[in-house]
Amino acid sequence: MRMLKNIDKLQQIAPLNILTFVHILRCLYQVVISYFGMSLDPEYETYIKKFKDVYMDLGISITPKVHILTENVLDFSKEYGNSLSWYSEQALESSHHDFLRNCWEKQSYKRLLGRPDYAQNLKAAVIA
């Protein structure tokens, strides 16, 4: 995302022979901001189709992720009417990471599995 957010800077320093790739990244960024957030941009289909056209013009192989993005995502959104963020595991993973770092380990609840106080400490950490 850092690179996509700075695509204008990348375009300024990119050699002419890779500007096509900078353009595809710009198209990908449009897809990301229109489709991967909490709200669905009304133009997301246009952005996905444009990304697909530009990608196909590169003449490189289609990766599984590009295939899913250009072929399956539109059907999914039409069926469910939401952006992908509604189905993401990112929030759950973030809370799990936060629990491990800021509670389980930092507040000294962590115990080795099998120790007599493991269950008691896990419960206390979850409550905390």
Rank of each mutant, 00 (worst) to 15 (best):
N17Y: 13
Y35K: 08
L16K: 15
V22D: 03
K65L: 07
K106S: 09
P64V: 09
L19T: 14
C103G: 06
V32E: 12
N121V: 06
D41S: 07
T70P: 00
V73K: 02
L58S: 06
F51G: 00
E105M: 13
D98I: 10
E93T: 07
E79Y: 06
E79W: 06
V66S: 03
P116E: 14
L100R: 06
N17Q: 14
L69F: 00
S77G: 12
M3T: 15
K106I: 02
F36N: 08
N17H: 14
I33D: 07
H96P: 00
S94P: 00
K123L: 07
V22I: 15
R111K: 14
G37A: 09
T20M: 04
R101Y: 06
S108T: 11
S77V: 14
E89Y: 09
T70A: 02
M38E: 13
S108K: 14
Y87H: 09
I48W: 02
K123V: 06
Y47G: 00
G81D: 11
S77T: 15
L28E: 11
D75A: 12
P116W: 12
L84T: 15
K123P: 00
L69N: 01
S88Y: 05
L112T: 13
N102K: 11
T20Y: 04
I48Y: 00
K9W: 11
H97L: 14
V66I: 13
K9L: 14
L122C: 07
F36V: 09
I48G: 00
S61M: 05
S94L: 11
T63Y: 01
H97K: 15
L113H: 13
L92I: 07
E93P: 01
L19A: 09
M3K: 13
T46E: 03
L4W: 13
V31H: 02
S94N: 12
K106G: 03
V73H: 04
S85F: 09
I24F: 01
I62N: 08
L16H: 11
L19K: 15
D117F: 05
I33T: 14
P15H: 09
R2A: 13
Y80V: 14
T46M: 04
R101T: 10
L58P: 00
I60T: 09
Q90V: 07
V22S: 06
I127D: 10
Y109K: 02
M38S: 08
L92N: 11
H67T: 04
P15D: 13
K65T: 12
L113Y: 15
S61F: 06
M56N: 05
Q107N: 12
A14P: 06
E43W: 01
Y35R: 08
V126M: 01
K52A: 05
D57G: 02
K78W: 03
A119E: 15
N17I: 07
S88G: 07
D57H: 03
K49L: 04
T20R: 08
L74T: 13
D41L: 02
Q107L: 15
G114K: 10
L40V: 06
N102D: 12
L19H: 10
I127E: 08
N82P: 00
H97P: 01
Y55V: 01
S85A: 10
N17R: 07
Q120R: 04
L112S: 12
L25E: 07
N17K: 12
E45F: 00
D41V: 04
Y55F: 11
Q90K: 04
Y109I: 03
A91Y: 10
Y44K: 00
T70W: 01
L19Y: 03
